[in-house]
């Protein structure tokens, strides 16, 4: 009895880690954009939703191989991120933060309504049959393992980009002192556009991983949006490492809480932990 219990707990912990990877990836794009541009994309999860639709339509409707469809989604959402910046954020860059929040909030409703009108309210999925992996007595969904590995690769890739390249180093620098960037020959406007494109690309990558596990519908952003914001705030908004760690903390609460009680309770415990942390450290676990 004891051993079985432990194995199920272990399974829950590992599933928590797997979930953490995807949540961490979701948080990454949002944190990147906020850290560099100082604007929160309230409509971030809706970009993910459009990415999921992109994979769905490319693969299911147009018969593009799933890997290529995923690549397409990363590109499409990357371009959407850059467009979002160019058309919506740039004009309000000097405005009050509340106005910036409101416009991206407006984009959220716009994208949701747009998706409802154009795609309808059906739940759609790729219809892929991915196997279940088992290690001894433990069972894991292949989609989750894959999502975890790709999320990890995405994060490592971003890390290397930000630390090894001139452009990436400049993106980190601009988050620390935007005023003097022109003295370095850096065109902030271009850097913001590139950052937004990368933020969108990360949302697109997250979309590919989510569409393997979940049906897509116009309101799916509401499923991931709040938890992604919670993770970013918990880790310290704009702090990419903080968001990463927070993703694993939250996913363990969800997974282990769900194991001992019920999956909904997992979320309740995670949010309670979040609220408690906000009382003690309003700037987030890793915030300044």
């Amino acid at each position: 009895m004891d051993t079985i219990f432990d194995i199920y707990l272990l399974e829950a912990i590992v599933n928590g880690v797997l979930l953490g990877g995807v949540l961490g990836l979701l948080a990454l794009g949002l944190n990147l954009v906020f850290g560099v541009i100082d604007v929160v994309w309230i409509c971030y999860a809706e970009l993910v939703m459009l990415g999921m639709y992109t994979v769905y339509f490319l693969h299911v409707v147009y018969g593009v191989p799933v890997l290529l469809a995923c690549l397409g989604a990363v590109v499409v959402v990357g371009v959407l991120g850059a467009l979002l910046h160019y058309l919506v954020i740039r004009p309000v860059l000097q405005s009050e933060p509340i106005n910036q929040l409101l416009v991206t909030g407006g984009v959220l409703f716009f994208l949701q309504s747009f998706a409802t009108l154009v795609f309808g309210i059906e739940f759609r999925n790729l219809g892929l049959k991915l196997p279940i992996l088992n290690f001894g007595e433990m069972y894991f969904s292949y989609a989750r393992v894959l999502a975890f590995l790709v999320a990890l690769a995405g994060m490592v890739g971003l890390y290397l980009f930000l630390t090894r390249t001139f452009l990436g180093t400049a993106i980190r620098a601009i988050a620390q002192d935007r005023e003097i960037m022109p003295l370095m020959g850096v065109d902030s406007r271009k850097l913001y556009l590139v950052t937004s494109g990368i933020g969108g690309g990360l949302a697109g990558l997250a979309a590919c991983l989510l569409v393997l596990q979940y049906d897509v519908h116009p309101a799916i952003g509401l499923t991931f949006g709040p938890i992604t914001f919670m993770i970013c705030v918990l880790g310290g908004l704009g702090n990419m490492i903080g968001g990463f760690v927070a993703a694993f903390i939250i996913s363990q609460f969800i997974s282990i809480g769900g194991f001992f009680f019920h999956i909904e309770w997992g979320y309740v415990i995670a949010f309670a932990f979040f609220i408690l942390t906000m009382f003690i450290r309003p700037q987030g676990l890793f915030g300044k």
Partner: peptide
Amino acid sequence: RRLFPRLTVEENLKIGAYL
């Protein structure tokens, strides 16, 4: 001076060579 405080010395120099 306006260095980028949370970048290393070498990263600061790297930004100087951004062109």
